[in-house]
Design a protein around this nucleic acid. Structure first.
Length: 272
DNA sequence: CAAACGTGGAT
DNA sequence: TATCCAAGTTT
């Protein structure tokens, strides 16, 4: 849930999930579509699908217990290098090199003297992080948490609180006079994109109690006699985007291909 | 390896 | 109002 998503937005959903599904087996025992529904508006709903798949793998291959080693974690759906290291470190106290966006930024400034880390995680960054990690298990866990928190709370992306930084006298970026970034991060376009349409379609499927016929995506909800309540709300939002039919088509086929939707009785629904 | 993949609070 | 960007992963 925390992948690319602020922790304050995750917390309420996370609590609901743990109340409803206290164990991996409990989650795996329900359809994947329920996971997507309970995901709500956290974004990147494929993560819900993968979390459900990970729960199934943990149930089947690990006796229902989340594995405690990096390679086993890495093998789970939706778990990449960062998440595998974070779980092994923070949940199990293992010595693993955790590198998230916060840690990358701290290292870029404090050690490398640049305003921003590289656009994508590099091997050099991993080597640097590994070289900084304390040797014993307990210290390594504390180090991972400390550097991550420093980045999240003090050495922030937008307006770093250098005056409040406990290591500002060691900062290479500060010593260099806080040089500006060497590149401009390219922001992701949103309005009018396939992603926006896809998100609106998933919002419809999340609300729907029965399979949604293609017509409902391709025609005005008002023309189909839908009141502006229930599924009419996300449906109206989708149509307000005024997307081209082929764009809608791409979204629907993409969702089918990704397993976020399936066809049933001639309509689209979340995987049941 | 670049590109795709959501969402909403903050600035 | 527009842009930024957040505990990344997969193809």
């Amino acid at each position: 849930m925390l992948q690319q998503t602020p922790v304050v937005r995750v917390l309420p959903v996370w609590h609901e999930w743990l109340k409803r599904w206290p164990t991996p087996a409990a989650l795996a025992g329900e359809p994947a579509g329920e996971a997507v529904r309970a995901w709500g508006r956290l974004g990147y709903p494929r993560r819900a699908l993968r979390l459900h798949a990970a729960a199934a793998a943990i149930t089947q291959d690990h006796s229902g217990k989340v594995p405690d080693t990096y390679p086993e974690l890495l093998a789970l759906p939706g778990v990449g290098g960062y998440t595998a290291a974070a779980v092994a470190s923070f949940a199990y106290g293992r010595r693993e090199t955790v590198v998230d966006t916060n840690i990358r930024r701290v290292h870029a400034r404090l050690i490398s003297g640049t305003a921003l880390p590289a656009p994508a995680l590099t091997a050099a960054e991993m080597r640097l992080a590994a070289s900084l990690l304390p040797a014993d298990d307990a210290s390594s866990v504390r180090w991972n948490a400390a550097v991550m928190e420093l980045g999240a709370l003090v050495c922030t992306a937008r307006a770093p609180k250098c005056a409040a930084c406990p290591v500002n006298d060691l900062c290479a970026w500060r010593a260099a006079g806080e040089p500006p970034p060497s590149y401009v991060p390219k922001g992701q376009a949103w309005h009018g994109t396939d992603r926006q349409v896809r998100g609106a379609v998933v919002a419809v499927l999340r609300q729907a109690e029965t399979p949604v016929p293609p017509d409902m995506f391709f025609h005005e909800p008002a023309d189909l006699g839908f009141a502006p309540t229930g599924i009419g709300v996300p449906l109206a939002a989708l149509h307000r985007l005024n997307s081209a039919p082929e764009q809608l088509e791409r979204a629907l086929t993409g969702l089918l291909a990704d397993g976020l939707a399936e066809m049933h009785d001639g309509g689209y629904r979340l995987p049941a």
